[in-house]
């Protein structure tokens, strides 16, 4: 059985999905990051407030894009994971 994801891991997963797709619809993001609608909404609100994700309105749809802060977060998370793996934390 897979381990329950921590808050920071969920944020990293969300940001990675957006980074991979470059721009994504919120519903697609919800499926891709394996989250319920309520959880997804609360995480997205937080990421938008923290300026890691930006909402872009097209003529028909609303897209989500990652900001430089979001990219920075992914980098930091990667560093953290490598440190954790090295030291066996």
């Amino acid at each position: 059985m897979s381990k329950k994801r921590t808050r920071i891991e969920i944020i990293n997963d969300i940001l990675n999905v957006i980074a991979e797709k470059q721009k994504i619809k919120p519903t697609h993001l919800m499926y891709k990051s394996n989250l319920s609608h309520t959880l997804m909404k609360s995480y997205l609100e937080e990421l938008i407030v923290k300026e890691m994700v930006q909402k872009v309105n097209n003529k028909e749809y609303e897209y989500l894009v990652i900001t430089e802060k979001g990219i920075e977060f992914i980098g930091k998370f990667k560093k953290m994971k490598e440190f954790e793996e090295t030291f066996g934390l």
């Binding site: 980074a19 991979e20 470059q22 721009k23 430089e68 990219i71 992914i74 980098g75 990667k78």
Partner: peptide
């Protein structure tokens, strides 16, 4: 990583 580089270009 590649994902970040790709999305930086996208940004």
């Amino acid at each position: 990583n590649k994902k970040c580089q790709k999305s930086e270009q996208g940004l």
